[in-house]
Amino acid sequence: MTNIKVLKGGFFTTIQDIGRWGYQNIGMPVAGVMDNFSYRVANYLVGNSEREAVLEVTFLGPKLKFLEDMVIAITGAGMNPKVNDTEISMWKSFKVSKGDVLSLGAATTGIRSYIAFGGKIDVEPVNSSKSTYAKSGIGGFKGRRLLDNDGLNIKVFNNRSPDRYLDKKYIPEYSKKNIIRVILGPQDDYFTEEGLNSFFNPKGYKITNQSDRMGYRLEGEIIEHKEKADIISDGTVFGSIQVPANKQPIILMADRQTTGGYTKIATVISSDLPKLAQMSSGDEIIFKKVSVKESHKIYREFEHKLSIIKDEISKTQKIRYHKIGPLRKMKITINGINYIVDVQEVK
């Protein structure tokens, strides 16, 4: 069954969720969304669980025709979304009707947009995740990006949460130059003092066009190793910064392989990954060192902000109903305390 026809797949549109966790010990890459913030907010907006799968759209958006009414929301990069020919707001949920065509253009701010649908994207999870790992053809829609004329199916369970929105003060502004905070290590001791200073130089690093969901190759001041650039292969995380023998850093992203054999000078803190995920070639990064303790404080604040956002979004929803019965008074007891409440049947 299909209730969304993909008229155009866009540049690189894939189904992603929180990622394929729990299988790195067998060499399975995690994949999952690049921008965890926009992803979670998109799901809050349509009333989904925050771990539900969405479409991650890169650079140039898709064109989708709806064959059933549903509620959707678009967050992340600005791609001038339109329904039919009317521009629509981002960071807001709205209802689309059967026959409507949603189109996203080229990214003007940021590079990745997220489209959430009220309900579940109907694809079989692989190892408990719907994320697409395109390199090995695993998960998502047939293990690959969406192409023209594909058909998607959404198990629509929620068409009652349109008009939710994210307060303006929380909407991220995407910049072409960012300070990205890192924790040194695990192999910072493989670098000379000078090499470490280079890494934190105030001119920073430029993202090259050899950058994708797997990793960002950067270009800038060279980073000197003491001796070797290679280590015995060990584990990697989202945000690991490798420095191979060419002395230029590579930041590993969502589609990273589980192990790697290059020295890792530092690791991007998780709270700065959403910002990084919206940067692209030509953009500039200046690294800033924080301690593990500081990073945990930042992480707590990040999660706290998201929980406030979730709460506020749910309160923006207008409740629509028709009163159909007479008003009655009822006595109810909660935790041993009696209350008199007005009750009315609604539809």
Partner: peptide, 17 residues
């Protein structure tokens, strides 16, 4: 014990296979 970012701890046993 080495940090790999804010969500991972590396327990390194040695430097050989």
């Amino acid at each position: 014990y080495l940090p790999a970012g804010d969500k991972a701890l590396i327990i390194e046993f040695g430097n050989e296979i």
